[in-house]
Design a protein around this nucleic acid. Structure first.
Lengths: 219, 219
DNA sequence: CAGCATCCGCTTTGATACTG
DNA sequence: CAGTATCAAAGCGGATGCTG
């Protein structure tokens, strides 16, 4: 809330989104889409409820999000990013890219939500989809499953489940990420505890070529 | 300093660079190169000296900067980004891109340092250099001048001065930025207070084609 | 129950003064 | 020049209570 009061674009951006929790709220809305208050609360373990309310007010005042009052009968209000707020995606992307190596040295007590995989998975799979029939892969690694859907040349990742996935992956988040980054091939991942069911061809459709299978990974 | 403790790359990045002032210190080192303590202090108007010292300690501990103790006799220590710290450039870039529109509504009391122009000018001029002989343009708008140097296809911007610039620009930061972003042509800018000396062809070598000269700009 | 507001103890920040 | 020391003010985290 305290401005740097500097004629510098980056400093101005930090005036708006530089407060604690603010960019993580944006991350939630980017990965989950429009959220209720409680959805945000669940996706931000550790935040104090009054802080969440205050940040949401600030973000709305600054044109980053809108609050959508739901229709009268049984209802709840939705928070969603404005187009201007959507434009923060590259900021989160850049931070995620830079922070990715730091995930190696995480305490295993760290909180995790499955939808946090959406951005890194989409980034790692972007443009990697090979031609072929559309495939759906379900990933089970946290509270809820996520779906990797490859259609044509692009790959989408979203929270959800489906009865007819072509393949199912189950394992710790680091294993999933290493596999989908091409740091680990499927057999190595399975040796480290990954469970795989379904069509290996479906996985091959989206997984990048493995670059080095000698890397030992913790957990 | 307080970790979010979340298994999320963006959150991990914010654990390291999310504290107040931290990313602005990185901005200083990106735009000024290796800095002495006082250089940083001057480039960060408003920071408390104890905070600067503490942030520098943290950044060093996290491998973002190194402190280079100077040789014994008359000396001073230098802070510089590590390669890992250099990789934060995209983060600052993304923030600057997002924050640029907010510069329109700045109070005129805002602090300014000329080297803050380096990143936005380089971004706006990137790939815009037309073929032709090398040119140097001096920009005088703050405490110290900056030089725009076009050599071949790329353009570099750095703090400095030269006796033989092909052209000299003098005016407020918003005017300079609008001009170099192609939002204003030279004549319009001059009508709003910009002073120009030298070779108009030299400016044309790096300035993008003007897109709309009807925009009124404050200051 | 969703969506906060209030209160309280603790930590971080900001401003200034002082030191090797 | 390059910080450390000190202290007041603001921000944060956690718990609890209120309201539709």
């Amino acid at each position: 809330v305290k401005t740097y009061d500097q004629f510098c674009a980056a400093a101005r951006a930090l005036d708006v989104v530089g407060d604690r929790w603010t960019l993580l709220i944006v991350r939630e809305l980017l990965t989950q889409g429009p959220c209720r208050y409680t959805d945000l609360r669940d996706g931000l373990p550790g935040i104090a409820t009054n802080l969440l309310a205050e940040r949401l007010r600030d973000l709305q005042r600054n044109g980053v999000i809108t609050r959508e009052e739901a229709p009268p009968p049984i209802a709840t209000s939705l928070f969603r990013l404005t187009p201007r707020g959507e434009e923060l995606r590259p900021v989160i992307e850049a931070l995620g890219l830079w922070g990715a190596p730091l995930l190696q040295e995480m305490p295993k007590t760290a909180a995790f939500r499955t939808h946090w995989l959406v951005l890194p998975l989409e980034r790692r799979l972007r443009g990697r989809a090979r031609s072929g029939p559309p495939v759906t892969i379900e990933v089970q690694t946290g509270d809820r499953p996520v779906l990797i859907e490859a259609r044509g040349k692009d790959v989408h990742v979203r929270p959800g489940t489906t009865p007819n996935a072509d393949a199912t992956l189950r394992g710790t988040p680091p294993l999933i990420l290493a596999l989908m980054a091409g740091e680990l091939d499927l057999d190595s991942a399975c040796a480290q505890g990954l469970e795989f069911e379904g069509d290996r061809e479906a996985l091959a459709r989206v997984q990048p070529a493995t670059q080095s299978q000698t890397s030992g990974l913790r957990r």
